[in-house]
Design a protein around this nucleic acid. Structure first.
Lengths: 244, 244
DNA sequence: CGGCAACTTGACAATGCTCAACGCGGGTGG
DNA sequence: CCACCCGCGTTGAGCATTGTCAAGTTGCCG
């Protein structure tokens, strides 16, 4: 297996064990690779669904725009993340997807997806992948809903760290998160100014520093507690173990 | 077709046309019916998934609890609504489902779901049903995120009205919505007190009255505009027409 | 008739927003 | 090579929306 689909495999393996034939099948469908620069659009709201994406490198995000220009990010797609394979069943996109950093993505056609889903080991992993995306959406509703700015930000950082950890993109207690404060604001439904202040507060309280895209977590237990973070909603099995 | 699955069929038909054999298949699987009183639990967070639900009568809601007792409703299940058929692929529920009013639900086993999905006309409708649920979740993220209390409430009322309309549960410009102000508050991430004030404001401005569970919309065009409501995310085709 | 849940209203507090100004750094064009 | 510019981050001051607390009312059900 080359580097291209290895993150995808790492990710899917947390949902369901994969054999070599499963990984090979992934590799076989990784035919069309595309690169995107920050802010490039992958799909736009209202567009027909002709390809779905598997993110191989970089951060992308799903978002919706309000008529007055406000923007809400409804999900992040990290390396190893894959769109719901059933997306083809709807005629148009209800939201947009754009690159945040430099992104490399595998484009999959409906046919490619059909072939992948017919591979025994992959089928379940793909289904679970979509279900977890829904679970994350529900958790985010709580995040932008009842949590305070401090909890929101802490929670997002915990989630990003754990999701990156699964695909091998963290070092001990640090990782790279290529988000601007404005992008975090559009995710947490806060103003950019307030994200800045909250980030300062996190720094002053010694829990976390986040500067020049580098996240360093100084006190994870306290951070988790402050965020009310319980990773159950991510459904990550320890690698090599069954999820249930 | 008896009354039991008729709402379900009405709903699914908006996603994909159904033939008589499709409706018959639904009817055939409606074996286990259960009734729930307000606040009864249908499934609890953490529980194993053994049955999924199709709501035949009444309102239910999905929700998560925060450790300190705050509660966030993450979705409503109205008559005709059906859980994602793939829910069985995850080992435990990440959220709970409870009845809001008196509820009548059809319980479906994994086997029943498999049989339904093998019926040509139903398969696509079931897939779209789940995708729309995800689309609604994204819209709700915006709702609890950037919208003001006035917009939030207006938006929720628009959504509920249109969803009920599809299953024939509205009269001209009115419908029954069995929600308390506290339940609305837990949905919109507002305090119950503020929901009350906002409801008053809607009433004073002549857009809507909502009293003793009866919603009456006096000026729908203005309400929609105030809410920034665009029903595209619900993906309802006009009955009898293809969705795309 | 009593009791309880839901609703209503007022006063006050607080979290987070807006506006505004300024620093900093990297990229670009003269 | 330097100067400028622009995006991003930082900070302050004042304000607004919404939360909290508290008290009181209404209406239904037993």
């Amino acid at each position: 297996m080359n580097g291209l689909t290895s993150r995808l495999a790492l990710r899917l393996e947390r949902y369901s064990p994969l054999g070599t034939e499963d990984k090979q099948a992934l590799e076989n469908e990784a035919l069309e690779i595309r690169r995107y620069a920050p802010r490039d659009s992958l799909v736009r709201q209202g567009a027909l669904v002709e390809r779905i994406f598997a993110i191989v490198e970089g951060f992308a995000c799903r978002y919706k725009l309000l008529p007055d220009g406000r923007r809400q990010n409804t999900g992040f797609m990290l390396p190893g993340d894959l769109c719901d394979t059933r997306t083809f069943a709807l005629p148009y996109m209800d939201h947009s997807i754009a690159a945040i950093s430099n992104v490399q993505a595998v484009l999959l056609t409906a046919d490619a997806v059909r072939r992948l889903e017919s591979v025994a080991g992959l089928a379940q992993a793909l289904v679970r992948n979509s279900l977890v995306e829904q679970s994350i959406a529900r958790e985010w509703m709580i995040n932008v809903g009842y949590r305070t700015s401090f909890e929101r930000l802490s929670h997002l950082l915990c989630e990003l760290f754990e999701r990156l950890q699964v695909v091998g993109l963290t070092r001990a207690n640090a990782c790279e998160i290529p988000l601007t404060q404005t992008e975090i604001a559009d995710t947490l439904a806060l103003s950019a100014v307030h994200v800045n202040r909250t980030l300062m507060e996190l720094r002053r309280s010694g829990l976390v520093t986040f500067q020049s895209k580098q996240l360093v977590i100084h006190d994870y237990p306290t951070l988790r507690r402050a965020a009310g973070f319980d990773s159950a909603y991510l459904y990550f099995a320890r690698s090599g173990e069954a999820i249930d």
